[in-house]
Amino acid sequence: MLKNWIKTVVLAASLLSASSAFAFTEGKDFKALSKPMPVAVAGKQEVIEFFWYGCPHCYAVEPHVEAWAAKLPKDVNFRRVHVMWDGRNDMEGHAKIFLALQALGLDGKHQQAVMKAIQTDRIELRNEAKLLEWVKSQGIDVAKFKAVYNGFSTNAQLKNLAAMTRDYQIDGVPTFIVNGKWVTSPAMVGAEDATITKMLDELIAKGRKAPAAKKK
C-alpha cells in the first residue's frame, strides 16, 4: 500500500514537472532566418541582441538579459547591436552613445543606466550638452567620451549598424539572433520576462547539436 502511494506521488511530481517545463514552437516562438548569417567568433555559440535605448520593451527585458548574460558559459559569445533603421534620424544620437561606450569598454556596464536616463529620468541624451553632463555624473571620463563620440570612426560605424539592421532584417526590437540561424523576441514568446532567456538557452542547446556557420 505504502509503495503504491509513493509511486503515485512520484508519478504526479513527474507529470507536474513536465507540464511546467518550457516548450517552444518553431514558427511561433522562434523561426529560422531566411538568410543565415556568419557568426563573429568561429567555434562559439552566438547571441546578438538588437535593441534601441529608446525602446520601452528593451528596457523591460534588459534586467533579465543582464542576469542571464552574467552566467553564460565560455562557449557563448553574446553581443549587443544598437538598431539603426533607414530614415530614422532620431536614432543616430542614441546609436552614437552606444558606439562611444562600446569603444571605451563601458557599454555593458551602462546599458540599463542609459535606458533609465532616457525612459525614466527623461533626460534628452541626444542633446550633447545634457549627454556630457550625464556622462560626468556616471563617473566616465568626459574628455575621452567626447573625443570618441564625435570621432570619425564612430560616425563611420553608424553605417555598419544600419547595414547589420538591414542584413538581419530587423523590423522590431528587442530581437535576438542565435548562431546566425534563428530569430526570437519577447513579442514572439509572448512575455517580457525571463521567458526570452529560456528561449535563448534552448536555441543555444539546439546550436550545440548543429554547429554555427563559420565567419567568412
Rank of each mutant, 00 (worst) to 15 (best):
K216T: 13
M188H: 06
T120G: 14
N89C: 09
Y168D: 06
G190K: 01
N89V: 13
A18N: 08
E62A: 10
V178K: 01
F24W: 12
F98S: 05
E128H: 10
K109V: 10
V189S: 01
L203K: 09
V173K: 04
D167G: 05
L125Y: 07
N77A: 11
S34G: 11
P36N: 01
A162V: 03
A143W: 08
F24T: 00
K71F: 08
V9C: 10
M84N: 13
E133H: 11
K206E: 10
K144F: 07
K216H: 13
A70H: 07
S153F: 15
W134D: 03
R80K: 15
P174F: 02
M115L: 08
C55P: 01
N4T: 15
L106V: 04
K198W: 02
A18C: 06
I140G: 00
N160L: 09
M37H: 13
V114M: 06
D75H: 02
P63D: 03
L72V: 05
F145T: 01
G151T: 03
M91S: 15
M115P: 10
E66G: 13
K214C: 07
A194G: 13
G151D: 06
D121P: 01
A69C: 11
A143V: 07
Q102T: 10
G207C: 07
V39I: 11
R88K: 14
G27Q: 01
V81S: 09
R166K: 15
K216Y: 12
E49D: 06
A60I: 08
K35H: 13
I118F: 03
N77W: 09
F24C: 04
V10N: 03
W5T: 15
V76K: 02
L16M: 14
V39D: 06
Q111N: 14
F51M: 03
G108A: 11
V81N: 09
G93M: 03
V61T: 01
K181M: 12
S153N: 13
W85E: 05
T8D: 15
E192F: 15
I97M: 11
L161K: 00
V142N: 05
G105S: 01
L131H: 05
A67Y: 07
K144Q: 12
I97H: 03
E46C: 02
V39F: 05
L132C: 06
K216N: 15
A187R: 13
A70R: 05
E46Q: 09
G43E: 04
P38Y: 00
L132E: 02
M37A: 13
G87W: 06
D86S: 15
V39P: 01
I97F: 06
H110G: 06
Q102F: 07
S153G: 12
Y53R: 00
V65P: 08
D171N: 14
M164I: 08
G105W: 07
S20Q: 14
A12H: 10
H110I: 05
A70E: 11
M84V: 13
N127V: 08
G27L: 03
L72R: 02
D171I: 10
K109G: 04
A100F: 01
A147D: 09
S153P: 08
K71H: 10
L106N: 05
A69V: 15
M37D: 08
K198Q: 12
V41M: 09
P186R: 00
V47K: 01
M91D: 15
